[in-house]
Design a protein around this nucleic acid. Structure first.
Lengths: 219, 219
DNA sequence: TCAATATCTCAGCCAATCCTCAGCAAAGTG
DNA sequence: CACTTTGCTGAGGATTGGCTGAGATATTGA
């Protein structure tokens, strides 16, 4: 599935491209409004991720022009913090959803998935690994019918692990996925959260020294 | 595929050129920022490998100027250790990825491949030799469906051997590829690691006395 | 507002891993 | 065979990676 990211901050653009490609999307980048508009009106995208503040042509204008051209590709608008009015104008201009910076990548991914409208059975909302289930609709984690209480971060980490079974996820990947791009947390923080999860869910998360972590049945 | 390396330390520049050429890239070298900028804006490269600290014009400036000229060639920025802020400024200036010195050549190669975005099926992630498979996605090594545990260095060495089947790799080549250029390890270290691998994976790695090692079926 | 909870860092510990060394084995040479 | 060169391997010290308890700071909720 092909996505367009229109974002002038290269750091963010590069991070999104990398993350989305890991999730098997094909990603095109545009660095200003005009370029974004050109791409969007030439190519056929599943979703357009569009920053609000852009050089040459701002997001709202891009959005409006596309809608005038009868291009109804779903648009996810990125707005800087505190620009609440912009949210409104973003939605009025024809955007389908918005996200406030700084956001965690996992957050963006969830919205993109919602917009691609993969019917429910494709976007897994009930994840299962061994005797553990995680429901992303009601944020409930159960092990053998017993509910486990998790904090927000613990839940996000567990969800990420469970969405990538049989995959080793490095601490850096985990940080890039769970924390927002301004956060700058230490790898040790991941170790600590893995520790928390293991206390509540023993024998499920495995360390692969030098590489990262992996979830799965006891070996 | 043509690459540009902009690096003032001749030792590193030469090592990169040599290694990349062995991987069938054509490599141009530039030794300062101005020269690098000239090359980059004249020729057409698949990726630009750009040191941050450079005489005449630093990497960030080169990067910014190129982007202003609307040259969006993927840039891999090399930053010295401990210059964490530089990472940020590197990405903000328009670089697509960065690598902290000192790095192992294998590391750089992986990033270059990621940036040229040879789609997944072109960059082999599942290597196979005889009854042995190595998966670079989940770092899993299997022999006849049986998982073999390897340390990081062991894995890197095995991957290098498997990526060059029917090729004799000398100890020096192995050192240049797996260890970073500051490491300066003895050839004997390679012998030791070959020994470790042989213990875990008997009858696969062959010594060609005087030349090096080669992986393959028992002869 | 105050207490409970959550987030994140830090320092110290332990164990796996890395790498060197020295002695031995095997191969090559006259 | 004697001698040299090259490779192999067990032992062990140094280094690194990962885990955890303690605590400082931020956030939430009564």
């Amino acid at each position: 599935m092909r996505l367009l990211v229109v974002e002038d901050e290269h750091k963010i653009a590069a991070a999104l491209k990398k993350g989305l490609e890991q999730e098997n999307y094909a990603v095109d980048l545009a660095y200003d409004g005009e370029e974004g508009y050109d791409f969007a009106s030439t190519e056929d995208y599943a979703v357009i991720i569009l920053d609000l503040m852009l050089p040459k042509m701002d997001g709202v204008t891009v959005c409006k022009k596309l809608r005038e051209d009868n291009i109804h590709t779903p648009i996810l608008m990125l707005t800087a913090k505190g620009e609440l009015d912009d949210k409104v104008s973003g939605l009025n201009s024809g955007a389908d959803d918005y996200l406030t910076k700084p956001f965690a990548f996992a957050e963006l991914l969830a919205r993109v998935k919602a917009l691609t409208r993969r019917p429910k059975h494709t976007t897994q909302t009930k994840l299962k690994v061994a005797d553990l289930t995680l429901n992303t609709n009601n944020y409930e984690v159960k092990r053998n019918a017993k509910v486990i209480q998790l904090s927000k971060k613990e839940f996000a980490l567990l969800e990420y692990l469970m969405r990538h079974p049989n995959t080793i996820l490095s601490k850096d990947q985990i940080i890039a996925h769970i924390w927002d791009y301004e956060a700058d947390v230490l790898p040790n923080t991941v170790e600590v959260y893995i520790g928390y999860l293991r206390r509540k869910l023993p024998n499920l998360i495995h360390t692969i020294r030098g590489f990262g972590y992996k979830i799965g049945e006891a070996k």
